[in-house]
Simulated scan of single mutants.
Amino acid sequence: MTTSATSETPLIEVKPALNIAGLAVGYGGVPAVRDLNAHVRAGEILALLGPNGAGKTTTLLASVGALPALSGTITALGEPLDRRVEANARRGIILVPDSRGVFHRLSVDDNLRLARRKHGPSVDDVFDYFPALRSMRSRRCGTLSGGEQQMLALAKALLCAPKILLVDELSLGLSPIAVEGLLPRLRQIADDQHMAVVLVEQHIELALSIADTAVVLHHGRSVMSGSATELRGRRDMVEAAYFGSVEEPSGDRTGVPERQ
């Protein structure tokens, strides 16, 4: 007697490009982030949301090796994170800081030339994402607007051939129009380059519109997390979590808090 198979082909689990497990990290031995769990896969965008002082930048610094973990682990590209920032950068873990990291006295061209790697993308490749920079190649960076400097900062990061791109406060000091132009471009880059992106952002709605998943931090703890689509549908709860009006879940703090 013959039998037909009824079970479906098992799904292949895609491991995260960046995995943060039980992370505690801070300054002078005092944790600014506690028991954080988060991950992002290649081609996905994880948005870290929360007010000033919530621990978002601290998380990014730990994720590139600039701050040592007090406890917990960070795994990047299948291996433990190195304690040296430069070693992690060579592996493709690149941070765009909120200061943008551009040299104001140098030209756009010189900034890009200094950032380019031997076997990385060409300048023309990054101009495809930021065509407005083509006409600014000879201009000193200090004469650019905030939005133009942020484009340059992202272009410099792309020249480093990142596999994991961490962007701190992309919209800081920018007009709403500039932000609305840059965030979709970041989504395009993640899709085209199959790149894992962690985005720290103050604009909740815009961040959730391009992200795949999100974590809301408050006082160093994750108070809400889930798919960006779900969180957009629960905007009232997201705002409550953002301002600390949602009680912190006990135990595993990942996952959207239970609805009342």
Results as ranks from 00 to 15, higher is better:
183 L>C: 08
169 E>T: 12
168 D>Y: 08
201 E>A: 04
175 S>M: 09
137 R>T: 11
219 H>E: 13
217 L>H: 10
144 L>I: 04
148 E>M: 10
170 L>A: 15
139 R>P: 03
129 Y>Q: 02
138 S>G: 08
121 P>I: 05
125 D>R: 08
223 V>K: 07
190 A>L: 12
121 P>R: 15
137 R>F: 01
170 L>M: 11
189 I>C: 04
172 L>I: 09
203 H>T: 11
215 V>T: 15
215 V>P: 09
235 R>E: 05
211 A>T: 12
231 L>N: 09
151 M>S: 07
206 L>P: 02
159 L>C: 08
166 L>F: 05
189 I>R: 06
195 M>E: 03
219 H>A: 12
186 L>P: 11
237 M>Q: 15
236 D>K: 14
167 V>D: 07
147 G>P: 09
200 V>W: 05
167 V>R: 01
213 T>C: 01
143 T>A: 04
177 I>L: 13
226 G>Y: 12
217 L>T: 14
229 T>N: 08
181 G>E: 11
117 R>G: 05
124 D>Q: 09
149 Q>N: 07
133 L>T: 07
133 L>D: 11
117 R>F: 00
168 D>C: 05
183 L>V: 13
232 R>G: 06
178 A>R: 09
160 C>W: 02
119 H>I: 00
140 R>I: 03
166 L>P: 02
157 A>P: 02
130 F>M: 03
141 C>V: 14
120 G>M: 02
174 L>C: 10
187 R>E: 09
204 I>G: 01
195 M>A: 05
218 H>M: 00
168 D>P: 12
147 G>H: 06
153 A>E: 09
125 D>H: 12
155 A>K: 10
119 H>G: 05
138 S>D: 14
153 A>N: 08
224 M>N: 03
172 L>P: 00
133 L>A: 10
156 K>H: 02
197 V>E: 08
158 L>C: 03
176 P>H: 02
205 E>Y: 02
142 G>D: 12
191 D>P: 00
148 E>G: 08
167 V>E: 02
190 A>Y: 04
172 L>T: 01
163 K>M: 00
125 D>Q: 01
125 D>A: 15
145 S>D: 09
131 P>Q: 03
223 V>I: 06
224 M>D: 03
203 H>D: 15
171 S>N: 07
200 V>L: 03
127 F>Y: 13
178 A>W: 11
141 C>E: 12
177 I>Q: 09
218 H>V: 06
162 P>L: 06
153 A>S: 14
222 S>V: 13
190 A>G: 13
144 L>D: 08
120 G>D: 07
233 G>E: 13
168 D>W: 06
233 G>N: 15
211 A>N: 03
120 G>W: 06
233 G>K: 04
163 K>Y: 00
203 H>M: 13
133 L>R: 11
148 E>N: 04
165 L>F: 07
206 L>W: 00
124 D>C: 02
157 A>K: 01
197 V>D: 05
234 R>K: 15
219 H>M: 12
231 L>D: 07
190 A>E: 12
223 V>E: 01
190 A>R: 10
184 P>S: 05
123 V>N: 04
197 V>C: 05
190 A>V: 14
141 C>D: 07
191 D>I: 06
211 A>V: 08
153 A>V: 11
145 S>T: 13
227 S>L: 09
157 A>H: 03
185 R>Y: 04
212 D>F: 12
235 R>F: 13
